[in-house]
């Protein structure tokens, strides 16, 4: 029986590869993250609360979370429209635009940051006409909002696109043949089918925007309490050697990210169990 116990797996290398995977994962990801949480435990609840409830921290968190949520909502709407156009219609340049959606994924954030700033600065191509209309984008919270929209687009599009592509055409034909108008079919049949994917896209775009740094800091203006994002405040606290403050803010942001991943995982499982895909 010992022979059986020793060789339960047909393919070789499970022990070795799993051991390496867990070790490397621990060294690069888990230990560093654990270090952060450990550091935060050095703070008493009171200290922790004092850091978080300081006006500047609160404002930075409010700017990051509030604007990220607003940007994710814009991305949800515009992303859906883009997905609809790319999946359902044929028009010149469709494949090019499809590829372009990934640019915010691929473009280094610092490049996106300086480019958006140049574009929306008061003398920029878009900033000038907007300034003439009395709208100031660069170096205001609006600029942060714009940068967060930029980096969030692909998340919504790439999550919803495959689901819409795989949607069984017969369910729409069935709805149509039962007398539903096109609008009713979209609202009552298609949208509910896309629901989990839309929510997932929203959550991913939000999570990315909350933590975003590179593409935001150039255009933000970084005025404390007004246009200062939480990641920047972490960097500032670090440069002031106020590690405790940096850690406390980071822990709050990390916990929110983990809650979002957890929610997205649940969403995805839920979606798999109920979506009528081919």
């Amino acid at each position: 029986m010992s022979a059986i116990a020793a060789r339960r797996r047909t393919l070789p290398g499970f022990g070795l590869t799993m051991g390496l995977t867990l070790s490397w994962l621990s060294i690069i990801i888990l230990i560093p993250l654990a270090g952060l949480f450990l550091k935060s435990l050095e703070l008493s609840p009171e200290q922790f609360w004092n850091i978080l409830s300081s006006r500047r921290t609160l404002n930075a968190l409010r700017v990051s979370f509030g604007l990220a949520f607003a940007a994710a909502c814009v991305n949800l709407v515009m992303g859906s429209i883009i997905v609809w156009a790319l999946v359902r219609y044929r028009f010149p340049g469709r494949r090019l635009f499809d590829a372009i959606v990934d640019v915010p994924f691929a473009l280094p954030t610092a490049v996106a940051g300086v480019a958006l700033t140049a574009l929306f600065a008061e003398k920029g191509w878009l900033g000038a006409p907007l300034a003439a209309a009395g709208i100031k984008v660069a170096f205001t919270p609006v600029g942060i909002f714009v940068a967060m929209i930029f980096i969030g687009i692909p998340f919504v599009v790439r999550t919803v696109q495959p689901v819409l592509q795989d949607l069984d055409p017969e369910i729409e034909e069935a709805a149509g043949s039962l007398g539903a108008s096109r609008w009713q079919t979209i609202i009552r049949v298609i949208l509910p089918s896309l629901g989990p994917a839309l929510l997932t896209g929203l959550a991913l775009a939000f999570a990315r925007a909350v933590g975003e740094y590179g593409s935001v800091i150039f255009i933000a203006g970084n005025l404390p309490n007004v246009s200062e994002i939480a990641p920047l405040l972490i960097v500032i606290r670090l440069s002031e050697f106020r590690y405790a403050d940096a850690t406390a803010i980071a822990v709050v942001m990390l916990v929110v990210s983990f809650v979002i991943i957890f929610a997205v995982n649940r969403l995805q499982r839920w979606a798999q169990s109920r979506i009528p895909v081919r």
Binding site: L33, L36, E212, Y213, A250, M253
Partner: peptide, 17 residues
């Protein structure tokens, strides 16, 4: 995990170590 950690925090953890 790293996909959902803010880049700044990804740097911070190594500063803390």
């Amino acid at each position: 995990l790293p996909f959902s950690v803010s880049p700044v925090i990804s740097g911070l953890v190594f500063v803390l170590l």
